[in-house]
């Protein structure tokens, strides 16, 4: 696979708390190809963000700890890099946008200063060069009067504009990978669409790969090439975007899709919610973590955690039951 950009194998991340060890990410494996967009979806607390933060060693440590796995990026294992080495990857080769633009920018520093920082650090620009590049970046993300706005502070921008600034910052050094950690969750619906369009445009222009984290399958459908569904720190299903929406194989994915309003529906139906709550990740149960909420659950689900298996080309699922027949595979 010549265009393989990032290959993550068996990633495990734990948090040691006073109540016990929280197993946030449990053996997550996936890969990312150049220029493609991979979406990771799942409920809050399923380990999507922690997976991404782990890749860049951004989890607070202590209590966080990566206990196993590797993440090969340009022949280097990101998880084994020294502090110095991972810093040269962050912001330069892998950019990241966070969920809440209202709190993710430093309130006491100007936008221009915050934008210039990575340019000076990674690309060795002078302050003057960085400033003019920062203005270019702002205009790339669609902020009017970019040169004048460089001296403004974050509180002088609206939420959507701040997220544009965050995006400008993340792509400032033309990274190979852009990680978008729920970038639209905190925004108005109309702004959400604009941000998704903007990221798509930048992806095609700069040719970067994107990992898009979201709990909203609707947003994901518009941008992703492949989708990973996570539950309780595990990947439960992975498929191409069309395949996943047309032919979901994991009960959890089916539940997520069922809870989504559809415009193509003939008659108006009630949205279906998934009963119950996601499990607390202290103990590692032997059973499938979704079994308590699953209407297909059979005996085996309670005794054995299913492994991720390829059921057809490019479609992996972790479930003992074939949801089409209702019988064990």
């Amino acid at each position: 696979m010549p265009d393989l950009l990032l290959d993550v194998q068996g990633l495990n991340t734990q948090f040691k708390t006073s109540d016990g060890v929280v197993h946030a990410v449990n053996g997550v494996s996936f890969n990312l190809r150049e220029g493609k967009t991979l979406a990771i979806v799942g409920e809050s607390g399923c380990g999507k963000s922690v997976t991404m933060l782990s890749l860049l060693s951004l989890i607070p440590s202590p209590p966080g700890q990566i206990t196993a796995g590797k993440a090969i990026f340009y022949n280097r294992d990101l998880l084994k890099l020294s502090n110095e080495e991972i810093r040269s990857v962050r912001g330069a080769q892998i950019g990241i946008i966070f969920q809440d633009p209202m709190t993710s920018l430093n309130p006491v520093l100007t936008i221009g200063f915050q934008l210039a920082e990575p340019l000076i650090l990674h690309l060795g620009m002078t302050k003057v060069q960085a400033k003019s590049r920062a203005a270019e970046l702002l205009s790339m993300v669609g902020i009017p009067n970019p040169a004048e706005r460089l001296n403004d502070y974050p509180h002088q921008f609206s939420g959507g504009m701040r997220q544009r600034v965050m995006i400008a910052m993340a792509i400032s050094c033309t990274p190979q990978i852009l990680i978008a950690d729920e970038p639209t969750t905190a925004l108005d619906v109309t702004i959400q669409a604009q941000i998704v369009d903007l990221v798509k445009r930048l992806r095609d222009k700069l040719g970067m790969a994107i990992i898009w984290i979201s709990h909203d399958l609707g947003v994901v459908a518009g941008i992703a090439h492949r989708v990973i569904v996570m539950y309780a720190g595990l990947i439960v299903e992975e498929a191409g975007v069309n395949d996943l929406y047309a032919n979901p194989q994991h009960p959890y994915t089916i539940g997520l899709l069922g809870s989504l309003p559809r415009v193509d529906e003939k008659e108006h139906q009630r949205l279906v919610s998934i009963e119950g709550l996601p499990p607390v990740l202290y103990a590692h149960p032997k059973s499938c973590p979704f079994a308590p909420r699953c209407k297909w659950a059979v005996e085996r689900c309670w005794n054995e955690n299913p492994v991720l298996e390829e059921i057809e080309a490019g479609h992996r699922v972790a479930c003992w039951v074939d949801v089409n027949t209702g019988k064990e595979r």
């Binding site: 860049l56 810093r87 990857v89 912001g91 966070f98 993710s104 920018l105 309130p107 920082e117 990575p118």
Partner: peptide, 14 residues
């Protein structure tokens, strides 16, 4: 613990 400190880290700053 603020978000913007995480942002600063994600930029690769010392």
């Amino acid at each position: 613990r603020e978000d913007y400190i995480r942002t600063a880290r994600s930029k690769g700053l010392r």
